[in-house]
Design a protein around this nucleic acid. Sequence first.
DNA 1: CATGAATGAGAGTTCATTCAT
DNA 2: TATGAATGAACTCTCATTCAT
Lengths: 192, 192, 192, 192
Amino acid sequence: MPQEAQPRQLIVEAAQELFARFGLAKTTMADIARACGKGKSSLYYYFASKEQVFTAVIDQEMSGLKNSIARAVAKADTPRKKLRAFAMARLIYLGQKADHYTAIKEEHLRHYGFIEGLIREYSHWELQFIQGILQDGLEQNHFRPLDPPKVARALFFALKGFEYPWITSISQREMKRTVDVLLEVIFQGIAR
Amino acid sequence: MPQEAQPRQLIVEAAQELFARFGLAKTTMADIARACGKGKSSLYYYFASKEQVFTAVIDQEMSGLKNSIARAVAKADTPRKKLRAFAMARLIYLGQKADHYTAIKEEHLRHYGFIEGLIREYSHWELQFIQGILQDGLEQNHFRPLDPPKVARALFFALKGFEYPWITSISQREMKRTVDVLLEVIFQGIAR
Amino acid sequence: MPQEAQPRQLIVEAAQELFARFGLAKTTMADIARACGKGKSSLYYYFASKEQVFTAVIDQEMSGLKNSIARAVAKADTPRKKLRAFAMARLIYLGQKADHYTAIKEEHLRHYGFIEGLIREYSHWELQFIQGILQDGLEQNHFRPLDPPKVARALFFALKGFEYPWITSISQREMKRTVDVLLEVIFQGIAR
Amino acid sequence: MPQEAQPRQLIVEAAQELFARFGLAKTTMADIARACGKGKSSLYYYFASKEQVFTAVIDQEMSGLKNSIARAVAKADTPRKKLRAFAMARLIYLGQKADHYTAIKEEHLRHYGFIEGLIREYSHWELQFIQGILQDGLEQNHFRPLDPPKVARALFFALKGFEYPWITSISQREMKRTVDVLLEVIFQGIAR
DNA sequence: CATGAATGAGAGTTCATTCAT
DNA sequence: TATGAATGAACTCTCATTCAT
């Protein structure tokens, strides 16, 4: 498969890097074109607009993140380990891409309605995923009685906060430890 | 008291609303000028650039948030209540401003270096604040043995996640309940 | 030959006319665009800035002037005639372009460093040229003993003054006569 | 006489310095106001517009130059010395002001019609002055027969060229020597 | 006599997008 | 399939000038 010759994918990859580094507003179509060695107007052969390029990037990142998470969690056997795998997979995925700044983490997202659908969909997926882990844990009697949807939601938001490590100047290693501290406390709270 | 006639403050308030609704990039100086009934160039009499207006807005929001938090926490007497007050004050403050989306939450922040200083400073303040509560709780023997800096950091990030309610379509009321669920779990984990 | 359809050259010509008439500061990109029937932003497809347009204009004028001078001087056979050809070629070239006022004479030049290089280079060329004529004249025994570099410099400055006919209200014809008067005096001074 | 308290003069002096250094276009009213420690709008109490300030500056410079020249020439006794004094006084006056760049030398002048009157008037004065010297010389039998108006005009333009020393990077000292070379040649041409 | 406040009218520049080829 | 050429619309920022005080 001549995969590197697929121009659409080439564009998305170049754009991903740029959006991640400079954000949506500050990345121009000219930048993207230059980065993938094409003429600026050629991009419009594959995408109707800059927004669409951005959407494609986000979409791809979300798929990647989903896969990473799912794969990591599958390897874990206890609910506790699963939850930890979940949190760590997020941290690692978001941390390894493009110098720690992925487009997915953009708060700009808020202001670009055209992407809300994707965001919601992905968030829903995460929520369900966490809830699933909790449900399993409950059924396997690992946890005290708890309301899975509610606790899942609490965990979902709590873990979201870790997407913004740059706020302090913290290394990924320390972030991982911090996640562990949080999970430990939480498990102390919910484990039987 | 002609307090509402102070033009600088007038501008900041108009800008706050607009930045909150549309973000830094999509809010123009012309918009701000229109919103406060001034000529576009008049803004430049008070601020040297759009960045400076934005900085002033962020600065003001952070002060407001700090005050809200400090006031709310002061009213609480136990560490548990304090922590809850802290989290709720954030939620309420960020939720009540400008259509629920404040500039403070802007991720642009990362891409606009000129504001990093403010962000870091504020984050530091929060971190210290949480740590203080934990320390007190420890000294008053409310908590099991724990490492205040580490747990404070974990809480800091966990609570940060609640700044992004729009990701799901959740009411503020439900957000509060969700915070409560999280805190309950966490207290179960750390309380003696 | 679609030579007049070359857009870059089209722009330069329009700009030349305008700069000459109104000067750098008072000529706007909008003016230039209008003058060559293009959209304002189109100019930026060919030139990165107004400065670059100006530089291109100056560059072209200097080339033109050099050519005019060189061609005129080549036709003359004695040093005296050569010197006269030199002076007249300048006068005619600078007088025939765009309402008699060319951008080349712009003093802005001094305030816009980006063009200094061009100016220096051209001045150097002129200086050498005059010196060459004097040298030849000496070798052919047309002149009394004189120091070519020094006299060349004196002539260079003296002729420079004739670039500013507008200072008085004098016709080109009279200017030519005036140059002749000067040269006559000077030749009386240096000829053998 | 409290001469330094005269605000009009204060403004003119500040403006002179600034125009000389940065040119008319790049000097703003704000700059001038700052430089003389006044509010920007105060300038309009003394001058109706920026143009008028500029005109005042030019006017003053021309007066100064006239005085310098007249004084220098008065000290010389022979026509030859007078002519030399004339040329040198110009060189020195234009060279000593504001880092070698006086507003009077601005070619901008060309593009600012409101000043043409002053320019012409001054040029006329110079022309007459030179002619006067020549006339005297003729009458005192220092010169071969010549047509004073014509030769005066030739000299006038020739000396004008020396106003632009910045073109080559030449010291004032060398400029003086160059003027001397020119004058020597010319005297050889006209002296009896 | 002096000025702080305010602004209208642009300036240069950028960029997503279009279209003929 | 790909792009060079071209542009309209908008943006930030500047500045001479006005005017109430």
